[in-house]
Simulated assay, not measured.
Amino acid sequence: MSNDPSPEMMAAIRLWSGVDCPNAAAARGLEDFPALMAEFEALRGTLVFEDEPSSFEAALRAEKEPGA
């Protein structure tokens, strides 16, 4: 049994958007998705948004557009 979720992702994209995977580059992009999801799953339970709210607010202020 294959662990490749690409066919299921392509079917979901087709279902939601009504288009097939447009080209080979898009299909290659989906190949990276399982590893990315595994990295996120490894972080589950270790990150909490509220850990450093002051740093988040400082980052927002640093990225604020001038005159906004």
Rank of each mutant, 00 (worst) to 15 (best):
V19P: 00
D4A: 10
D32L: 04
R44C: 02
M37T: 01
D20F: 02
E50N: 03
L30W: 11
A27R: 13
E65I: 15
F49A: 10
N23P: 03
D4C: 09
C21H: 02
G45R: 04
E57Q: 04
A42V: 03
E63K: 14
S55T: 07
K64M: 15
G29A: 15
L43M: 12
R28K: 12
E8V: 03
A68D: 13
E65V: 15
E57N: 07
D51N: 03
A11Y: 02
P34G: 02
P5D: 08
N3W: 02
A26C: 15
G45W: 05
C21D: 05
A38T: 01
P66R: 08
E63L: 13
D51V: 02
P5V: 11
G18H: 14
E39W: 02
P53L: 05
P53V: 01
R28I: 06
A59D: 04
P7S: 06
E52K: 08
P7L: 09
N23T: 08
R28H: 09
D51H: 06
G18T: 15
T46G: 03
L47A: 06
A11H: 05
P66W: 10
M37E: 04
A25N: 10
A12I: 11
F49G: 08
N3E: 07
P34Q: 04
G67E: 13
S6I: 00
L60T: 12
G67S: 13
P66T: 12
R28Y: 11
P34F: 00
A27C: 08
G67M: 11
E52H: 05
P34M: 01
V19C: 07
E50Y: 00
D20S: 10
P7M: 09
E39Q: 06
L47K: 09
R14I: 09
S6M: 00
M10E: 12
T46P: 01
K64E: 15
N23I: 07
W16G: 03
P66H: 11
P22R: 08
M10S: 15
S2G: 10
P5S: 10
F49W: 01
D20V: 07
P7N: 05
A59K: 06
T46V: 04
L60M: 14
S2H: 08
E31V: 06
L43T: 05
R61W: 05
A68I: 10
L60Y: 13
A42G: 06
S2E: 12
M9T: 02
E31L: 05
D51W: 01
F56N: 00
N3T: 07
S17H: 13
D4Q: 12
S17P: 08
D32F: 01
S54P: 00
P53W: 00
A62D: 12
V48G: 09
A62T: 10
E39L: 03
S55W: 04
A68E: 15
A62N: 09
S2M: 09
W16I: 10
K64S: 13
V19M: 10
E65C: 14
D32Y: 03
P66K: 11
A58R: 08
P22I: 03
P34N: 04
E31M: 06
F40V: 04
L30F: 13
L43C: 07
